[in-house]
């Protein structure tokens, strides 16, 4: 247990909360998706810090899953949702 790491994690939490504005406001769909990516990266950092702060090494595994799956969502978004939405203009989907 270390209070210092907990404070660091606490500092990172507003970074996530502020990212919300971009989801609400983002003009294009990609802007919104990028915020989800930011949540993923910040979430990994918070989990790493909490794993020392709470003294629980299992949290490293959760961080690993975060790192893998946040990217999965972005890639699905680009290949499925965003590309498919106006295929008429550009005939070459990837």
């Amino acid at each position: 247990m270390s209070w210092m790491h907990t404070i660091f994690a606490l500092i990172l939490l507003p970074a996530i909360a502020t990212g919300m504005f971009r989801i609400l406001r983002g003009p294009t769909a990609a802007d919104r998706m990028m915020t989800a990516q930011l949540f993923g990266t910040c979430g990994v950092a918070i989990l790493l810090l909490l794993s020392t702060g709470m003294g629980n090494p299992v949290l490293l595994d959760i961080a690993l899953v975060f790192a893998l799956l946040a990217a999965l969502a972005t890639i699905t978004f680009v290949r499925r949702t965003w590309h498919g939405s106006n295929k008429r203009n550009h005939g070459n989907p990837l």
Binding site: T41, V44, L64, A67, L68, I75
Partner: peptide, 19 residues
Amino acid sequence: IWLLVLVASSASCHLIARS
């Protein structure tokens, strides 16, 4: 973990920019 995040974010960054 860092390597995974690095690969994932650089790849998805390029994908988004290209789209």
